[in-house]
């Protein structure tokens, strides 16, 4: 099937001020490759600070002005420059953001979803979208502060589906929700994917990602280190990268094993694999090879010189 979104070798750099007037350029995403097909949910899993949200901003063309991007993003087979994504976002490409903060606190929910239009058709469409997620007419007359966490999340989803989106980017859509509410939200994603949309589901929570995703891309320090199918996670032996195995083993139900060390800070990394500092299987070559490529491996992709080896437990 034709991928709806393809990202190849994307890098994002930030220019920042250090003390005083000195500046430095930070690479926050490095050589990222990812693709989403229609009808597919691709979860992007990574620690906070690994560059997940910037990926979403990069696709939507809303990266801050002190950053710049390299590499290529293709949408439905065609390149997606900033102008085109500006044109498509909110229509074909939609963002489901993290929380109520993204709603205008001074505007009623209904008016916000209609984006100010008084057209009868638009009114009909938005109330249908709200009804679909179990939100009654009254919700339209509510202000965002009157919504509970779960309702706000459903309003945000409803706002994304007032049109017919082809690509949905959900950036941490479930934090702070209890398990039942989160499950319901994720169920809505599955429905949308089954209707033909491609979904990029950005989260830090692997357990949740596995409940709905088809593909999982694992992020570490601004790089995709592994792309695996969700089924691969049923057995740790199928996983390719030592970090992915480490996450798997860190799940409470799989032993809750910690690995030592932390994700390196962007810019502090010199050469070599970024996970080398936390990985016991790392060798001299791991630390010295610059930019290990993402390559095919047993039905998925991995960025590792020794795939299949265990990290320190």
């Amino acid at each position: 099937m034709e991928p709806i979104l393809e990202i190849e070798h994307m890098s994002v750099y930030f220019t920042q001020y250090e003390r005083g007037i000195r500046r430095r350029v930070l690479p926050v995403i490095r050589d990222l490759t990812l693709s989403v097909e229609a009808g597919q949910i691709v979860a992007v899993v990574g620690a906070s600070g690994s560059g997940k949200s910037l990926l979403a901003h990069g696709i939507l063309g809303i990266l801050p002005y002190n950053s710049h991007m390299e590499g290529e993003i293709r949408y439905a087979g065609e390149p997606l420059p900033r102008e085109r994504s500006a044109e498509l976002r909110g229509k074909e490409i939609v963002l489901i953001p993290q929380g109520v903060n993204y709603l205008d606190p001074l505007m009623k929910v209904g008016a916000q979803l209609r984006k100010g239009s008084r057209d009868e058709k638009v009114r009909e469409r938005t109330s249908r979208a709200l009804r679909r997620y179990g939100l009654s007419e009254e919700t339209e007359e509510m202000y965002p502060f009157e919504l509970s966490g779960g309702m706000a999340r459903r309003v945000l989803i409803a706002s994304a589906v007032t049109g017919i989106p082809r690509l949905i980017i959900a950036d941490e859509p479930t934090p702070g929700l209890d398990v039942r509410a989160a499950k319901r939200i994720l169920g809505h994603f599955r429905e949308l994917a089954d209707e033909g949309a491609g979904i990029l589901f950005i989260t830090h929570d692997l357990e949740q990602a596995l409940t709905v995703a088809d593909q999982v891309a694992v992020f570490y320090a601004g790089e995709t280190i592994e792309v695996a199918s969700a089924a691969d996670f049923s057995d740790v032996e199928n996983l390719r990268h030592p970090f992915t195995r480490a996450i798997w083993r860190a799940m409470p139900e799989h032993g809750f094993h910690p690995v030592s060390g932390t994700q390196p800070y962007p810019g502090s990394r010199e050469t070599g694999c970024s996970f080398a500092g936390q990985c016991s299987a790392s060798t001299e070559t791991c630390r010295e090879t610059d930019l290990i490529p993402l390559r095919e491996c047993c039905g998925g992709m991995v960025r590792c010189l020794h795939p299949g080896k265990e990290a320190s437990l």
């Binding site: 750099y13 220019t15 001020y17 005083g20 007037i21 500046r23 350029v25 690479p27 710049h68 390299e70």
Partner: peptide, 16 residues
Amino acid sequence: MKHDRKEKNRRKSTIL
């Protein structure tokens, strides 16, 4: 860094 964007240093010009 690889890229060499000649951009003006805003902080410097503000201080000046």
